[in-house]
Amino acid sequence: MAIAGNGSANAPVNGKLVTVFGGSGFIGRHVVRALARRGYRIRVAVRRPDLAEHVQPLGMPGQIMPVQANLRYRWSVDRAIEKADAVVNCVGIMNPSGAQSFDAVQAFGPRAIAEAARAAGLSAVTHISAIGADATSQSGYARSKAAGEQAIFETLPQSVVLRPSVVFGPEDEFFNRFGAMARMSPVLPLIGGGETKFQPVFVGDVADAVAKAATGEAKAGTIYELGGPDIKTFRECMELMLEIVRRKRLLLPIPFGVAMMQARILSLLPSAPITPDQVTLLKSDNVVSQAAIAESRTLDGLSIEARTLAAILPTYLERFRVRGQFDAHRAA
């Protein structure tokens, strides 16, 4: 079930309730803010609500409430969805850990959410997947994303699935990771030679797309692919990042075979900088398909004007400059 909204940044609370699973994460918190601006009450379903209090100031007092839910325990999913008018799933992981496996989080989890939503009388959910979701992929991440999409549509065919490319924004794990690396290391690795293509999309634009889908402004039963206005190779992304942080670093091409061996060793660490699965993902371009463009299953199709890397990256990468934000007005 979708709920109508007027999209106003100053909309009063309208009494409608949206449950957002994973609403305290990088994308989730922006989704919560986008929905709050449209006047909805939001129930933020997370494993640790005591660590999600930072989402409450995104709306008016009482508008946003964190609650406990774990996708591996159906009863908690049912409880989080109870009396909700719409449901959004933002839960996703790049690195499996313990019980939080790809299949548990990104395949079993979406099915549990969709089944609970159906039991609560809803006809659809809004689900965030990823460009590259593929049941035949060699990547466990991509296979689990495809399984999650299948589970959603098998259970609630009128649902909307959103597949973003690499998402960038103040808390991202892509540009921030390499910005931090550039601050410490004279060399940055280019896995596979840095030729993989991305179409980075601003997290605020993704959040707007999610809000539109959850409030009935997207075509039901559709997969949207979300990419920004810039298609860049891995190398070009690193060059742009280095230009913004005003540092010179050697960009070292690393063949996929060598990168895979390194990733297998690094994956033994508690917090691996890269995993074999991520190396596998880098073997394929991550851009919006021509079919999605032709069928208007994009940000343009949702009447969202995508923001550029050049407009957003300097607003949060300046902290990686030699003098941090105090370099903001110095000549390059």
Rank of each mutant, 00 (worst) to 15 (best):
D208W: 12
L226T: 01
T222K: 13
A207H: 09
T233E: 03
G194W: 01
I254N: 10
L226D: 03
M184S: 15
R246F: 00
L250M: 14
Q199E: 04
F256V: 11
E243K: 15
Q199W: 02
R183D: 14
G228H: 06
K232L: 08
E239R: 10
D208S: 11
G221K: 05
G228W: 05
A211C: 07
T233V: 02
L252Y: 13
E195C: 00
P186F: 11
E225V: 01
V201F: 03
E225A: 03
L250Q: 13
A214K: 14
G193C: 00
A180V: 05
Q199M: 03
E225G: 04
L188P: 09
F198P: 00
G194K: 02
I223D: 06
P255Q: 13
A213G: 05
A218T: 03
E239P: 08
T196E: 05
K219W: 12
K197L: 06
L252W: 14
Q199T: 02
S185F: 10
P189Y: 04
K219V: 14
G227Q: 02
D230G: 00
V210G: 01
D205N: 04
E217I: 06
P253T: 07
T222S: 13
I191G: 07
R246S: 09
V203I: 04
V201L: 04
M181A: 14
K212P: 08
G228V: 01
L251A: 11
F174C: 05
F174R: 05
L250H: 12
F198I: 01
T233D: 04
T196Y: 01
A211H: 03
I191M: 09
F198K: 02
Y224V: 10
V210A: 01
V245N: 09
G204W: 13
F198M: 01
D205E: 09
A209N: 06
M238A: 13
I254F: 12
A211M: 08
Y224L: 12
V187L: 14
C237Q: 05
A207F: 12
L240S: 12
I191D: 04
A220I: 12
E195F: 00
S185I: 01
F174L: 09
V203C: 05
F174N: 08
K197R: 09
G194D: 01
A218H: 06
P253M: 07
G221R: 06
R247Y: 10
A207M: 09
L251V: 12
V201T: 03
A182N: 13
I231P: 04
L240I: 10
F202L: 13
A213M: 04
L251I: 13
K248M: 15
V245M: 09
K212Q: 08
L252N: 11
P229M: 03
G192C: 02
E239H: 07
E173T: 14
R246C: 07
G216A: 11
G192S: 04
D230E: 08
